[in-house]
Amino acid sequence: MDFPWATFGARSFLALTLGATTGRLIADLVSGRAPAQDLTPFSANRFAFTGGHA
Rank of each mutant, 00 (worst) to 15 (best):
M1C: 07
M1N: 03
D2M: 15
D2G: 11
F3P: 01
F3H: 09
F3E: 13
P4E: 12
P4F: 11
P4A: 15
P4D: 07
W5F: 15
W5Y: 13
W5R: 08
W5V: 11
A6I: 03
F8W: 07
F8K: 03
G9L: 02
A10W: 00
A10L: 09
A10C: 04
A10N: 02
A10P: 00
A10M: 04
R11C: 11
R11L: 05
S12M: 12
S12W: 11
F13C: 14
F13Y: 14
F13I: 13
L14I: 03
L14C: 04
L14E: 10
A15G: 12
A15V: 04
L16F: 08
T17V: 15
T17F: 15
T17K: 15
L18N: 00
L18A: 02
L18F: 05
G19C: 08
A20G: 09
T21G: 06
T21M: 12
T21Y: 05
T22P: 00
T22N: 08
G23M: 07
G23Q: 03
G23P: 02
R24S: 07
L25N: 03
I26W: 09
I26E: 10
A27Y: 05
A27T: 01
A27W: 04
A27H: 08
A27S: 12
L29I: 01
L29T: 00
L29S: 05
L29Y: 00
V30T: 06
S31V: 03
S31A: 14
S31W: 00
G32V: 04
G32F: 03
R33W: 04
A34K: 09
A34R: 08
A34P: 00
A34I: 07
P35F: 06
A36N: 06
A36S: 04
D38M: 02
D38R: 10
D38E: 08
T40Y: 08
P41L: 06
P41A: 13
P41E: 09
F42E: 01
N45L: 15
N45H: 11
N45P: 04
R46H: 12
R46Q: 15
R46P: 01
A48F: 08
T50E: 14
T50M: 11
T50Q: 12
T50F: 04
G51W: 05
G51L: 07
H53I: 12
H53R: 14
A54Y: 09
A54R: 10
A54V: 13
A54F: 10
